[in-house]
Design a binder for these strands. Structure first.
Lengths: 186, 186, 186, 186
DNA sequence: GATGAATGAGTCTTCATTCAT
DNA sequence: CATGAATGAAGACTCATTCAT
């Protein structure tokens, strides 16, 4: 990827998160990225194209962050915790990318093609855990509720430590996971 | 409140939720509400003023929905469940108002004056519960985490049933509360 | 029609004729008409809409100019001459409108709906002459050739006197008609 | 002339005819011609330069088509007919070049230098006929009217057969010439 | 109170042209 | 020669807001 293209992606992501799609002008993005407006449209056909590419970019980052962790030798709880931590750490370390995904997940500006392409990979990732959930020591419930509960807790934890960074330490992160795990345990 | 003023409030709320602040034009609001653009600016000095008033309007609704419920004769869990249910029901019955609050809670368009005024009332409402939490049979943790966990679960539950309306029944709502409660229980 | 709307129509017509569709900017039109750019788009949804309305406006003018002239008591040649003169006079007196029609007749910016609506009226106007042409003392030929020959001569005459205004007098106009008439006479 | 230079000329001519000067972008020309934008500007200093060169190119083509035909042994009418046919055939066989000339004849983008240079040659070509017109069996009239009448008829004939290609045959072309000739004959 | 014509700054996007490679 | 990334002025169109009626 060309240098200016990357610069535009990196610059526009926090702007979109903080000011929304319509609240961020292409002029502002270009200016902040230190390129001409024409350059932005050289790399991204439209503003929609830019945000679509940002969505792919962010989702790939979060997938990478969580990937390839399942360890058969550890307990199921340990494996789930590891996944949970990967997501939470990603959200804390790269809050803009995380918030971008949360904000534009339902946005009409992300093409359904892109959404579908990404969602597929996500489903693959979680497949290995689903099995464990079903056999495990956790409450009986349908998949969607479990997934939403998991995600809700990840999101909640990230948001909480974003708001209260002085509270973020090993102990409180452990506690947050226990809140989640004790909720689903039988 | 005058009829047209009310019409503008009711019309603009879902528009703002679905298209965002900058994505919704005053012309569209006026047209949808069946009034002239001039009329909108007669009742609301600026677009910011309109969204500020919507925030007050929505927050007052949710406060009303949760108010005056604490019953000394019931167990603490029952009281918390009752509060949790009030919020969840509000979000399910009036999803636009609920989403409006969630979306514009952090928005720069809501004046900090308005935010402060409202937050104050909220704190009052929760004060009575805080005591219970401290004395109760729940895990030891600091207030902010508890509040955020509570809110995260409410939000999560509402979002889940919005996405999966066919799953919404007494049993699954109870289950959702148990996920929350078992999380904080010792 | 509102005053500013009319002003925009009158101002833009010569601009489009002289500089073409793409060569004339909406900013220039508005400035020349003495209105704000927003005003132009208040009355005309798009630039295409403006040129479409101009086409209707011009064609209606030329139709009015030629209308209702057929006189059974005069010779056929006199009637044709009268029609020919009406068109020629229109083109000389209102050269912008005439040139606008000639230039944008085949333009993709005029909707086919508008073209059809106008063409219909034109066909009606010429119908009464067609009969005469067929029975008359003129050469045998198919309708389209006759019509194109007639129009070509009208256009030619107007263009000629536009370029050589000092030549325009009764005698030369008569001569021009004779060039046309002797062409089609047997 | 280099291959790419020629390609650009051949590609841009129909584009300019169909979409106008401002309606055709240099990017589109380059893309259609299969060259880089930089290449276009290597051969043609500006867009105006390109259209200027196209004008010369087209006018030279039409001059070639009509050149060197006057035959003292034939009747004057035969000679005029031959010239008339040369132009008509050119317009029918190479409609884009012909239309280009007609469209950009009055265009401000063609430098007056170019126009003058070309017009000169044209005058030379017609000089030999003027004499004949004056002495011949045709109506008394001034030169400009005669020239415009001649051109008008050529243009008219070409346009007519472009619109009605199925009517184009020896007989109808003869008829078209007779319309013209009988018009100017005494 | 209610209207909607009028405004002009601001939006996204295109374009002719340049220049380093 | 040939390329295409880079530029920023200009284009069509939108929008919050005002004000005369």
């Amino acid at each position: 990827m060309k240098e200016k293209e990357q610069k535009i992606l990196d610059t526009s992501l926090p702007l979109f998160v903080e000011k929304g799609f319509h609240g961020t002008s292409t002029a502002e993005i270009a200016k902040t990225a230190g390129v001409a407006t024409g350059t932005l449209f050289h790399y991204f056909k439209t503003k929609e194209d830019l945000i679509d590419r940002l969505y792919i970019y962010s989702k790939e980052s979060i997938l990478e962050a969580a990937e390839g962790d399942y360890d058969e030798d550890k307990s199921f709880k340990e494996n789930v915790k590891s996944l949970w931590l990967n997501f939470v750490n990603f959200g804390i370390e790269d809050p803009y990318k995380f918030n971008f995904i949360m904000t534009f997940h339902c946005s009409p500006y992300i093409t359904s093609f892109t959404k579908g392409r990404i969602e597929e990979k996500f489903v693959d990732l979680l497949e290995v855990y689903k099995k464990g959930f079903r056999e495990g020591e956790i409450k009986q419930m349908y998949d969607e509720l479990l997934m939403d509960y998991f995600w809700g807790n990840v999101l909640n934890t990230i948001t909480h430590f974003e708001k209260n960074p002085e509270r973020m330490n090993q102990e409180n992160i452990e506690l947050s996971f226990e809140l989640f795990w004790d909720g689903i345990s039988k």
